[in-house]
Design a protein around this nucleic acid. Sequence first.
DNA 1: GCTGGGAGAGGCTTA
DNA 2: TAAGCCTTTCCCAGC
Lengths: 250, 250
Amino acid sequence: MKLEKVSEEILNSIKNQYMCIVIGECFVSYQGRASSKLPRGKRLIIFKADSSVSIHENRLVRPTNYMTNSKTSCTTQTVDKKEELKLLSKNKAKETLEIIFYSVDDINTYDLPMSNDLRLSGSEKELNDALMDDLSFLEPGLKPINQQQSFRKGVCDIIAEDRDGKLVVIELKRRQADYGAVTQLKRYVEQVEKIKGKQTRGILLAPDIRKNAMELLQSYGLEYFSYDFEVGERSKIKGIGKSQQKLGDY
Amino acid sequence: MKLEKVSEEILNSIKNQYMCIVIGECFVSYQGRASSKLPRGKRLIIFKADSSVSIHENRLVRPTNYMTNSKTSCTTQTVDKKEELKLLSKNKAKETLEIIFYSVDDINTYDLPMSNDLRLSGSEKELNDALMDDLSFLEPGLKPINQQQSFRKGVCDIIAEDRDGKLVVIELKRRQADYGAVTQLKRYVEQVEKIKGKQTRGILLAPDIRKNAMELLQSYGLEYFSYDFEVGERSKIKGIGKSQQKLGDY
DNA sequence: GCTGGGAGAGGCTTA
DNA sequence: TAAGCCTTTCCCAGC
């Protein structure tokens, strides 16, 4: 396949925000936050309407190389009497992605909509909403006090009040809680204490917690509850377990 | 394009570990760790040799839907007098990905090697080595005392001794340091203090640090130095800057 | 096989 | 724009 033609088709596709798919023998070099070289080999290259470029090998979901928000330029050159097509993509962060094609097996351009229409459920946001609906099954008498308020820092924090009128910060995680989750909760609790000027409890709610994270949590005097959830059309929290720490209280 | 033929080509491609690329009108539904639905629309679907399936829209580097380690089966059915091709992919984690094709614009199969071409990264080891070679440009009189200790990727823990004989834990980050970096360093310092039984300094070395992380670091009494590095054939540290905190000392 | 942890993380939302 | 944070994170290396 004539590389001159390939160059034209790629540039035309980018200009018209089509999706361009190329299969060809290439060498890839990246310079930016890191630096990498992909030796000569046959690969799949995708140019999308949002100006992203991805290089895929015949394995893994993620591309081996990629660049987003790029401006791509093409030049054909002759090296050792052989034609080469050089694609240079740059972005604002001064990163560069260079693809050199030695030969192209196939190139196709498709007019696909640049839509974003995945409907995902089971996200933390959704679980958060489910939890907000009824905090009482976490602890009797617990009431949310910041349904809309935004003196919270993260997206999914709940500030509530327990039956004794004490403030409670709840951090919800949809996966095993790690060190970061604990320090995050600690920060929020401190922040709320500072703003409200009263002692505040902190509850970490997660399906599971790493051992060292649990230790840190306890040393901070925070509380942990495990929970189960079900994903589906509408995700829901199935049950709350008591943490060891909590058990010890009784 | 006849969906019966499409079905055959996809299954054949999977069997032979080719790469199969399909452009078609489809609906996608996923159930697993989360749950999602992608309404009918024209998309790119990639079947790779490692049995991964990805669905791409005309934007973003990452696929909207995907599945790895899957077993895929095909059935064609007729709904409302219209032919449909149903692909069902399952993996061991009991996750399911269902793609229903209403029409297929194009399908191509390519015999690409399932190689894992090493991406040579501007090596972090080199940054570690460069730093280890001469700690004195961080601070006069600083000497490493665990030259042989193993490094983890992306993180370099060095234990050194300053000119006053005090222990210094140094953590090197490749990227902007965040809360995690600070709490990590804090942990190491505490660990070393506990083991060695003597007061220990902690230095965070990173290209940049987030404002809040800086505050936390200072509240912990830790130190921060910024540095520049160059990636390329041989990565090297270009220079060490002094942190605001450090400047205040002088 | 499970788990801990980095990554050129990507990508999204809000200040 | 930067900061903060979630993710079906993906992926590898260690046990």
